[in-house]
Design a protein around this nucleic acid. Structure first.
Lengths: 223, 223, 223, 223
DNA sequence: CATGAATGAGCATTCATTCAT
DNA sequence: TATGAATGAATGCTCATTCAT
């Protein structure tokens, strides 16, 4: 029933908007919008997010949305980025601990799955949707500035780093770190994909699947 | 009072159709429709498939679609079934061989990945698309009659069966077969999902990833 | 994993017509169609009658309907005529009895209301719908040939005749018979209109309303 | 309720894209829409009213309709309410007079018929059209707030009140007021229905029919 | 007699987006 | 900064009807 954007539209986002915000009000409003959209995304799912609904939720006209975001996709991007940036601190903290690397890896693997299951819609938007033009690079440095000048954090690199430490500690077999990380990521990603895209299936208990997944990966990585 | 008049009223529509679309040829037409829908599904995603677009692609009126499929979901079902039915024969052949179970499992795992990579669009259609209403049960018996009385083959059960034989032969650790199969499936599915949904990423060489994936899984499953 | 049910779904209508009709069955077929349409009209209401549904109910293609009726309205006409012709015998029988005219009138009034309530959809189609072109004359003779050469019976004239007899017997006040009949008809028609067009209203019990209606009319007509 | 459409609808097609329709002016636009819908309802019947047709008649896009009415039913409600609210004042005035109750009743009965005959289209809209979902209650108090919080006036209750006064004055027979009112309403309604829905019939003179109708009713009600 | 295939018009409603103010 | 008004395109689906066979 929902009408989608006609065709694949060009991103006009090349030039940053540089909204001049006075007294910080701009940013607040923007955050409000993102919050409302996030809520919608979470409660109604991807297709349930429409500009009208977001506007209604915030209490402004839909037109006003376009003051902050040039188009729907930009808003969705913002929502996802905001949510995903929440996982970084956890992984950061993990990396800072001085437990055995293998234990940290295990916890990191669990954390990733838990995060995905806790934010299925965002995960879906970011990782399970084919976007016409995808400007993301999983091999980018952990922390960097993206091509639109936005600061980004690359979760994949946390995994690479975790594996590197384990390798150094002799707790993980030798081999190319990136390939290894890709394989591990895939194994995790697949579980999330199944659980998120086919939620109506009678899968085993998520907690059990998490443990099985992490277990399989760690045994598979053992030297 | 009297009952009413019979008969002749003005014809509303007089104009004869000048050019007719070519007539359909029974099953051929149906296949044509399925093909067009598949193409659309692949190129525009689930939400991008509308009855009108399919009709336009085939070159018939959207109304005509309803001659062949009672509703949109039925058409989509047909598309998926057609794609899916291509996987089974290969797995069937595998199960028939009498090599060591672990070798068959390894080959099966490779075959699954190769099938996915060889048919990325179809894989995406069936396994990487969220269907609002999904009537499919991954735990159904390998060969069974579905609720519409149609014979079905369940690829997931090939995996369960392969694992069972390995377990019996002591080549795979003990544990719940279904959970184990789900975990293995996830690991494979994830690789395909990454490669198919983000083809523009600079992933490692597919053959290498296949071997890494299968290797990780088999080591992870070892007793 | 399994994909979905394929292709052709069961038609709801189970059996295609088993037996071929032989010669002279044409009229029967027509009656069959009328019967099916009547059933639909009654069970689903006016808007629920579509050519497709009628065809499906009879077990023929919708195209075939057009062999018997040039268009939908013609079929509906036939349905109504057939139904309304059922009231004539009852009124005929009434007229033939030799009770006191006033008693016959009373019974006739009741019969009309009961008939309308028993066939609300037909009543609605015939008397409560404004048809673009209405070729009917309430002052036509009781039994006559209409302009298309069809035999017709004019229920209004039963009323006139009933009133005439009462007048002759001194049981009804003097006055123009047609005007009087129109007034009586109106009083009855109005009750049916209310009950039929606003069935969800909490009207008093129909039987009570019938008696009240007939009572009001008879007292109003008294000399 | 004259057609207030101000107008200039001629720019329908001629206008190139850049030329905008004249902007609406709040309530005026709403009234315009109601007027157009009323016209359509009157000329094509309930089923003939579609949002598209209304929009086309007003000269705006069908989407714009939803700016003023949340759904079709809401528009239709507005149409009926607007029409209906024209009857009340006359009856109100009547009730305020202190003539003999029976005389007021007689005048009220005449007034009702005259109103109907003077506004046949509106009468038809409100009382001779079957609404799939009808939220009106003829037994509601004379003046009340309906379920949408709108003030409503219930003409039926004027009749009940008139009858009550007559009963009290011993000028009308005893009996349940509501049933009696329903019967009287029916008798009047029927006359209007006949005259309005079958205007091409050769009915007796309306003035004569009015007097006959009122006479029949009053004699029928006499103690 | 009958059908299978097809059509164009129509339905209510939702969408992202624009633009003058 | 914000809005009210508006739009074109799209959605799934049903309708009466036609026409070649």
């Amino acid at each position: 029933m929902a009408a989608k954007r006609p065709v694949t539209r060009q991103r006009k986002r090349a030039a940053p908007k540089s909204v001049r915000k006075r007294r910080g009000e701009g940013a607040d409003r923007k955050d409000e919008i993102i919050a409302a959209a996030t809520l919608l995304l979470v409660s109604e799912g991807y297709e349930g997010v429409s500009m009208r609904k977001v506007a209604a939720a915030v209490g402004i006209s839909s037109t006003a949305l376009y003051l902050y975001f040039e188009e729907k996709d930009e808003l969705l991007d913002a929502v996802c980025y905001q949510v995903f940036s929440q996982i970084a601190p956890a992984l950061d903290a993990l990396l800072a601990r001085d437990d055995a690397p293998i234990d940290l890896l295990r916890e990191g693997l669990r954390a990733y799955l838990r995060f995905g299951l806790a934010n299925p819609d965002q995960y879906r938007v970011v990782f399970l949707t084919r976007r016409p033009r995808d400007d993301w690079d999983h091999r980018a440095p952990l922390s960097h500035i993206d091509r639109w000048g936005q600061p980004r954090i690359n979760t994949f690199m946390y995994l690479v780093e975790g594996l590197r430490r384990c390798q150094e500690a002799g707790q993980v077999r030798q081999g190319d770190l990136v390939t290894m990380a890709e394989t591990v990521l895939a194994a995790q990603h697949g579980l999330l994909a199944l659980l998120i895209l086919s939620p109506q299936q009678k899968w085993s208990d998520p907690e059990v699947l998490i443990e099985e997944n992490v277990g399989l990966i760690l045994r598979g990585l053992a030297p």
